[in-house]
């Protein structure tokens, strides 16, 4: 997949880890072209990867009949990513706090926390069926990260 320097691209991908890798590669390329430094590229790429993993693993549960829909966009003011699955839906208010003492040693439950930590905006939208996450990383006017 090739990412645009500006503009928007959308993909419909199978519910596989290979799709997650493809999304990660496209996001990395978009982040490079947007002028993000290595640290910011790492944060953005990991955040979108976590969203894609959630869509494949928790949303679609690797169901070959379901797809994930991904869009990546450089608006000039921000990098905007959407990741949607066709799963049962997710209410973010029900997610346990990974920083709570009783959750510190849990093997899962940190993905959304990392996404929120690394991005400037995170929005959830309920689909029928599924969940769509929108992730935003603001850019400085010159294309540099704010």
């Amino acid at each position: 997949m090739n990412a645009p320097q500006t503009g928007r691209m959308s993909f419909s991908l199978a519910s596989t880890m290979e799709s997650v890798d493809a999304v990660e590669a496209a996001v990395e390329k978009l982040a490079v072209e947007a002028g993000l430094d290595e640290d910011e590229r790492f944060r953005v790429t990991m955040a979108v990867r976590e969203a894609a993993v959630n869509a494949v693993l928790h949303g679609n549960e690797y169901d070959p009949a379901k797809h994930i829909a991904v869009s990546i966009e450089n608006t000039g003011a921000a990098l905007v990513f959407t990741v949607a699955d066709q799963g049962k839906g997710l209410d973010p208010r029900t997610l346990p706090d990974p920083l709570a003492p009783e959750n510190l040693l849990r093997g899962t439950g940190r993905g959304i926390f990392l996404i929120r930590s690394f991005m400037d905006e995170v929005h959830f939208r309920q689909l029928h069926p599924g969940t769509e996450l929108t992730l935003v990383k603001n850019l400085a006017p010159g294309g540099e990260k704010t």
């Binding site: 790492f42 990991m46 990867r49 976590e50 993993v53 849990r106 093997g107 899962t108 439950g109 940190r110 993905g111 926390f113 990392l114």
Partner: peptide, 8 residues
């Protein structure tokens, strides 16, 4: 590189 699964 460690993602959320790796942390877990």
């Amino acid at each position: 590189y460690i993602d959320s699964s790796g942390l877990g």
